[in-house]
Computed example of a mutant assay.
Amino acid sequence: MSDPESAGDRPAPKRPHRDFDARARAARTDFELQMRARKAEFDARNEVLTARTGRNLPAAIGVGLLFAGVMLGSLLVWTPAFMAVAAFLIGMGVYELASAMRFSGRDVPRIPSVIAGIAIVPAAFFGGPETALLTLLGGIVLVSIWRLVEVAAARKRPTGAELLLDLTSGLFVQSYVTLLGACVVLLSAERAGALWVVGFIIVVAAVDTGAYATGLTFGKHPMAPRISPKKTWEGFGGSVLASVIAGVLVAWLMLGQGWWFGVILGLLITASGTVGDLTESMIKRDLGIKDISSFLPGHGGLLDRMDSVLPSGAVALMMFLMVH
């Protein structure tokens, strides 16, 4: 016997999976809209920070953490591995500065400059100060002779003044990057020197962080507007406070020194880091460039990140020798 209701009059079966798909698509669309809005808000804030600080802050933080991790890891795990890191950093720093010099018309030979910069690392680590000094002098001679041979073989020769500028620029590259980098390597080779390197890098990081945070928040009075317009006295005050706190902690927990030693360490590294930063700004202003290179996102070049570390390494080595 047939059903009184025809098949066409029966209600269509419900399909719950269609409703679920629709809700899922709506949720995904809403999530994508929220993410786009958050990204737009983040980009807007990042643009404001970039305009105030002159750098991409998230990229700068990420690269800075990676940079510090590689350096500190090589020092704490196996100190000789730091030679490879130091050779890379010094070699790249020399290459960047020599390239910047060439960009401004000062013909500094890059190949011998990099060779001299890398050679100083094993010389300082295994041979000590005397070997490092002889290697530095040999590197300067190599760079100078290389340039003189280039000039002798060139069809169009520079004037005497231009050649003198090339030679003195090559000397400056070695004196600035290679010599100061050798101080860090010499310190790392000393007994317990690895901890001293880690300690002074922590203080340098405190100087940069204190200056950045207070300068960004309270900075109103430029410190050296013609050299570095974004550096303020408020930021300098923050760097002093942060470096003294970090110096006391480093001296007490890592170096086995009294609190007063940490205060002196913090103040001296604040001075050396600030001078290094201003020196780098003067070099770039003299060469007519914004960054030494674009090797690191948000940072410029490696040398832009080592401007405070290089002179501070010489200060740390001096204090180590005074204590020991």
Rank of each mutant, 00 (worst) to 15 (best):
F236E: 00
H17T: 11
E47V: 02
W233C: 01
K284Y: 05
G8Q: 13
G276A: 03
R191H: 05
C183S: 02
A192K: 07
A123M: 06
A37W: 12
V114H: 02
A100N: 09
I140T: 11
P225K: 01
L310A: 13
A161D: 08
H299S: 04
V207M: 11
A124G: 11
G276W: 01
A314M: 04
L249R: 03
W260L: 09
A246Y: 01
A224N: 01
P297A: 07
F42P: 04
G276D: 02
M71H: 05
R157N: 13
K39V: 14
V240N: 11
T29A: 13
V149K: 08
A22H: 07
R18F: 13
M35L: 14
A132R: 07
R305C: 03
G266W: 00
L72G: 04
M254V: 06
V177Y: 05
S239N: 03
V77I: 05
G266P: 00
A12K: 14
M306F: 02
A246S: 06
D286T: 15
P58G: 04
A189Y: 00
F320L: 13
R15K: 15
P58K: 08
D286R: 15
L255N: 00
A12L: 13
A192E: 12
R45I: 09
E32Y: 14
E234Y: 06
L296T: 08
S281D: 08
C183R: 00
A182S: 07
L255A: 00
E150Q: 11
P58A: 10
T214Y: 11
L137T: 13
T131E: 14
D291K: 13
T159E: 07
S169Q: 10
A194V: 05
L216F: 08
H299K: 04
P297R: 10
F82I: 07
L253V: 03
G235W: 01
T279E: 11
W78V: 04
A192L: 10
F218S: 04
L278T: 09
A81Y: 04
L253Q: 03
M101Q: 10
I111M: 13
G8S: 15
G258F: 09
L33R: 08
E47K: 05
